[in-house]
Design a protein around this nucleic acid. Structure first.
Lengths: 205, 205
DNA sequence: TAGCCTCTTGACTGATCGGTCAAATAAAGT
DNA sequence: ACTTTATTTGACCGATCAGTCAAGAGGCTA
């Protein structure tokens, strides 16, 4: 973490997030990233041994940037069901901002990149998996808390249920990217998540 | 009907389905497709004006090949809930065969290709959307039949529910591709679908 | 001021990209 | 047979791909 005057490394990562999130990995060239970052290619390869390494660094950065949102939404002093609601609202808001900035709906950067590159590059696949698993743990903890407060049966398989919730959310985001529309997300995300959670009404506190 | 003709066009389409389903669109070159099909590049461009046109033709062919499976599963004389069950079983079986043949889990060819290429090429995006909508109609009809038999409330928004079911299935398939594993599909697909359907009879853990 | 280290620059590589073309060949119609 | 059309071939194109490299610029410390 050397502190550079221009901080070229950071600029390259931020540019990569923008371009790859929009267009995907293969559709964005190193030259294009360099041009957008106003960085010469020799500098690029001074900081990153390969294009893949930049992509992985970009995934890490994007993940670290999204963490506070997750931590806030899934804060343990928020009622567990409301955590999912907050995630849906914040996520939709984030998608709206990105869509406005980039000119199109982009969906989940990790899953989009993972689905494209998983067969080609194991380091990208593993990084995707790592980030996904980290997200699922938020869901799992919220489900555990739902069980504890009696909103879900005691024998609930929280890991499996967390997987299903995650699959649904990712499916919604992939469809939003393909259809280039946020409307279904706004209509279906929260209700679908709640349906998948399947909590009963909390009777007593 | 002399079948002795080489049917180069068909060979190219079949090869494209194989390679693109595995590796994605951008990661497969025209040269690679030609080599695997044992077709010279001049012949390729005799039958297809561009790589994109081949991809769209491949999507059409793959869709037509999958239609009988859908028609059989969603036959109107099958009880509506069982239709989803059959789809899950047949779909999982299909994924198993493909994974064995290709050496890795590939997920849904249409959504994988659509997510990668939607921002780059509108014809691919539209073809993806068309196929997706066609699939959703099977779900929608089954939901209508569930309403009619009283397993779902009369005021059910079947279009929205069909969207949610579809999102969940696609999410599961994308995750299977990224994780290169069919295990979650086998464990979660049917129960998750039923949970999302929310019909009265069936209960999922 | 000199030496050192980090970073930058721009020209360069060989491979590969999607796509073109004219000519050769095969097939089909008359 | 002859003509027309459909298909195949292999060489070829300019652009672009990811990645390399030697030389230089700039700042830091001794």
């Amino acid at each position: 973490m050397t502190k550079t005057k221009r901080n070229t490394r950071k600029i390259l990562i931020d540019t990569a997030i923008d371009l790859i999130w929009q267009a995907g990995y293969s559709s964005v060239s190193v030259d294009e990233i360099c041009k957008n970052a106003d960085v010469r290619k020799g500098s690029f390869y001074h900081f990153f041994p390969s294009k893949v390494d930049l992509a992985v660094a970009a995934m890490d950065k994007a993940f670290q940037e999204f963490r506070p949102i997750m931590d806030e939404a899934f804060s343990s002093n928020r009622p567990p069901l409301e955590r999912f609601e907050k995630l849906a609202n914040d996520g939709l808001e984030s998608q709206k901002m990105v869509a406005e900035q980039y000119g199109r709906v982009c969906g989940c950067p990790f899953v989009t990149l993972g689905a494209e590159m998983a067969p080609q590059d194991e380091t990208i696949r593993l990084k995707t998996d790592e980030i996904i698993n980290h997200h699922k743990q938020y869901y799992e903890q919220a489900l555990i808390d739902l069980v504890q407060e009696g909103s879900l049966p005691a024998d609930t398989d929280v890991k499996t249920k967390a997987n299903k919730i995650h699959s649904f959310i990712m499916g919604q985001l992939v469809m939003a990217r393909i259809q280039n529309s946020l409307e279904p997300l706004g209509n279906e995300l929260i209700t679908g998540m709640f349906r998948m959670i399947g909590a009963k009404e909390k009777v007593a506190a």
